[in-house]
Design a protein around this nucleic acid. Structure first.
Lengths: 145, 145
DNA sequence: CACCTATTGCATCCAGGTAGCAATAGTGTT
DNA sequence: AACACTATTGCTACCTGGATGCAATAGGTG
């Protein structure tokens, strides 16, 4: 809604166009919804947000645009649990931990994973990318159960 | 097949019976398959192993027995990536890291996650259970791509 | 404005897993 | 050894989350 947000929408659309893509109203609406959403939206949630203004945009189109954006490195999806994947801008990517009882999502600072990343690199030649799957456990209130 | 393996099968079946369950040929076959498998079998892989000897055991039954065993704390399932979940005995649970390009699964010592577990506990009141989801990244051979 | 082709809507399909229900089969008791 | 009780099974149908094939539409470049 703000001037800055509009700039960001156009920035992303420009990157799509620069890669040989076309700017369509569905793409503009989806990118706008993605920037406006401050939580962890699933494809379905994004579809609802887009369809609130443009009811004719199909779910399939949402999935395809999200795939396109992901291929360009603009968005990433994360699996927080057994449900649908959630999407966010790559720039704002961060590790998640999820309570496997109540589903609470806790955003964690990247630094928390640094030691693990070092161990995996040193001992297993493995480069950790902690964003794609959440790690599970129990939050404060569910730990007893 | 060995004496020890048979003992373990019966141990697990006894735990099922102790919980009010019944020992059926499908359950015996599935537990046997689970103990015989040394990798990361999916429900479908376990179904195939069972059906090799008892073709009439239905996929649905495999899922239900696995659920039963999981409820009793005997097995756990883990999501290694976008495919089906894999099952293993709780006793042999360990964290996994998966290469998101080639799918290679690397078993990691629990100790590698200790520092992360401490950080999450101290800073977020969160008790890490690193088994349920794999953490993703890139293995040695795929890291360039 | 005309062409080229990326994108879309639609219908259909897919994988992985669940649920309802009647029939079958373990198991403690007699 | 048969009974009764109810856990378990097979079957079929269903569900969610997502992918695909194809003809029609619509960006955008010359």
């Amino acid at each position: 809604m703000t001037g800055m947000a509009s700039y960001a929408v156009d920035d992303i659309l420009d990157r799509l166009r620069a890669a040989g893509g076309r700017i369509t109203s569905a793409r503009r609406a989806l990118v706008t919804a993605l920037l406006a959403h401050d939580g962890h939206p699933s494809a379905e949630a994004l579809a609802e947000a887009v369809q609130a203004r443009q009811p004719d945009v199909h779910q399939t189109t949402i999935y395809r645009i999200l795939d396109d954006l992901e291929r360009l490195g603009i968005v990433e999806h994360t699996h927080l649990g057994h449900g649908p994947a959630v999407y966010h801008l790559s720039e704002t990517a961060h590790p998640h931990v999820v309570c496997d009882r109540c589903g609470a999502v806790i955003q964690v600072d990247r630094k928390a994973f640094e030691s693990l990343a070092h161990t995996l690199l040193d001992d297993y030649d493995f480069v950790l990318q902690p964003g794609h799957f959440a790690v599970t456990g129990r939050c404060r209130t569910c730990v007893g159960e």
